[in-house]
Simulated scan of single mutants.
Amino acid sequence: MILHYQPEKCTGCHLCELACSGYKEGVFNPALARLQVSSGYKGDNLVNEARLCEKCFKCADACSNRAIVYDRGPLSLVLDDCVQCGACIEVCPTAVLRPDGRGFPLLCDYCQGEPYCVKWCPHEALSLKEVE
């Protein structure tokens, strides 16, 4: 499964970011979300873009301590093995992976198959799809 974004349906409300950070971190703070939505105008048109985890697993491959693990499922972080080196963040092709306030990467695990970003998107701009 992978997150799918449809920009034509997105209004730029950022509710997905708030739902993500609220569920994962217990606070409504878009800086702690596992996805990022940006909104801006190009001419007279509002343009919304999203950066999402694409499950490329480059972060796990870059982790020399094997603190990021996956087994045909969601990514997970073994906190005791993470040394906060940032190698995983540097290789993220979508630049959505970033550190939390302690230096640990904010990994998207798709909320164990029930992503809150998808659940709370009022316009269905986000969905969970099978990988083709």
Rank of each mutant, 00 (worst) to 15 (best):
residue 50 A to W: 04
residue 36 Q to L: 07
residue 35 L to A: 08
residue 51 R to Y: 02
residue 25 E to F: 12
residue 26 G to W: 05
residue 70 Y to G: 02
residue 37 V to D: 06
residue 63 C to N: 05
residue 34 R to W: 03
residue 57 F to M: 13
residue 25 E to M: 12
residue 58 K to L: 12
residue 71 D to K: 15
residue 48 N to A: 07
residue 53 C to M: 10
residue 53 C to E: 06
residue 32 L to F: 11
residue 24 K to Y: 09
residue 39 S to E: 13
residue 17 E to W: 00
residue 61 D to W: 07
residue 36 Q to R: 14
residue 66 R to P: 03
residue 71 D to W: 04
residue 57 F to R: 15
residue 49 E to D: 13
residue 44 D to C: 08
residue 25 E to Q: 13
residue 36 Q to G: 04
residue 17 E to I: 04
residue 17 E to A: 12
residue 25 E to T: 06
residue 18 L to C: 05
residue 68 I to E: 00
residue 48 N to G: 09
residue 72 R to L: 09
residue 20 C to S: 02
residue 64 S to I: 08
residue 17 E to F: 00
residue 33 A to S: 12
residue 34 R to I: 04
residue 73 G to R: 12
residue 33 A to Y: 01
residue 21 S to K: 01
residue 43 G to S: 10
residue 60 A to T: 09
residue 38 S to V: 14
residue 53 C to K: 10
residue 40 G to Y: 01
residue 72 R to P: 00
residue 57 F to W: 10
residue 40 G to F: 05
residue 73 G to P: 01
residue 35 L to I: 09
residue 69 V to Y: 01
residue 48 N to C: 13
residue 24 K to L: 12
residue 47 V to N: 08
residue 39 S to Y: 02
residue 21 S to N: 02
residue 18 L to N: 07
residue 23 Y to Q: 14
residue 25 E to P: 00
residue 22 G to K: 02
residue 70 Y to V: 09
residue 21 S to V: 07
residue 21 S to W: 01
residue 25 E to R: 07
residue 16 C to Q: 06
residue 33 A to Q: 02
residue 52 L to Y: 11
residue 31 A to E: 15
residue 27 V to L: 09
residue 33 A to W: 01
residue 29 N to Q: 13
residue 16 C to H: 05
residue 34 R to Q: 11
residue 43 G to T: 09
residue 46 L to D: 05
residue 39 S to W: 02
residue 65 N to V: 00
residue 16 C to N: 07
residue 22 G to W: 03
residue 42 K to L: 15
residue 69 V to L: 12
residue 16 C to F: 06
residue 56 C to L: 09
residue 70 Y to I: 08
residue 57 F to H: 15
residue 18 L to M: 13
residue 20 C to V: 13
residue 52 L to E: 08
residue 26 G to P: 14
residue 23 Y to K: 12
residue 53 C to R: 10
residue 22 G to T: 05
residue 66 R to I: 02
residue 60 A to C: 07
residue 38 S to Q: 11
residue 51 R to K: 15
residue 63 C to K: 05
residue 60 A to D: 04
residue 27 V to A: 08
residue 72 R to I: 06
residue 57 F to L: 15
residue 55 K to I: 10
residue 63 C to F: 04
residue 34 R to N: 10
residue 56 C to G: 12
residue 61 D to C: 00
residue 54 E to P: 03
residue 67 A to W: 01
residue 26 G to F: 03
residue 26 G to T: 04
residue 69 V to N: 03
residue 72 R to M: 11
residue 66 R to S: 15
residue 26 G to K: 03
residue 16 C to E: 05
residue 63 C to W: 03
residue 23 Y to C: 11
residue 31 A to K: 11
residue 58 K to E: 08
residue 72 R to Y: 13
residue 56 C to I: 07
residue 24 K to P: 01
residue 54 E to L: 14
residue 22 G to M: 01
residue 49 E to L: 12
residue 28 F to T: 11
residue 52 L to S: 13
residue 43 G to W: 09
residue 40 G to I: 02
residue 68 I to H: 00
